[in-house]
């Protein structure tokens, strides 16, 4: 089982994602962080195999958290899950910072699982 940390300020998105990833039988969700700062703390505690990270969050946004996370662990596997995926500058910045891929909201279950599987390779 791969261990996943979900980072999103929305409770409903976290619930949706948790349902999708645990429902596949391939992942355990180790925690839900509501902003980038919480994500960095929880990453150090849980050392997950994969992080699903929103971009637009209060306190610390997802791209700032991604930048810091990649300096903490260059091999970290992060997939951004965001409504801003279609904004070219945000998408390419996420990839340049080391995100494995970017999933746009609204997302579909099959697409999420396919991208997470590829990110874990």
């Amino acid at each position: 089982m791969k261990r996943v940390l979900i980072v999103d300020d929305s409770i409903s998105v976290a619930r949706q994602l948790e349902k999708i990833v645990t429902g596949s039988g391939e992942y355990d969700v180790v925690g839900h962080a509501k902003n980038g700062a919480e994500a960095l703390k929880m990453y150090q505690i849980h050392r997950p195999d994969l992080v699903c990270m929103d971009m637009n969050m209060p306190i610390m946004d997802g791209l700032t958290a991604l930048r810091t996370l990649m300096t903490m662990n260059r091999a970290a596997r992060v997939v951004m899950v965001t409504s801003l995926g279609g904004v070219g500058d945000k998408f390419t910045e996420a990839l340049r910072l080391g995100a494995r891929n970017v999933i746009s909201k609204p997302f579909e279950e099959a697409n999420v699982l396919q991208i997470l599987r590829e990110a874990c390779v």
Binding site: G85, G86, G88, F91, N101, V102, P106, F107, E108
Partner: peptide, 12 residues
Amino acid sequence: MAVKFFGQFLVE
């Protein structure tokens, strides 16, 4: 199911 640009579509 979202607004995308071509490069993003290809990576996704």
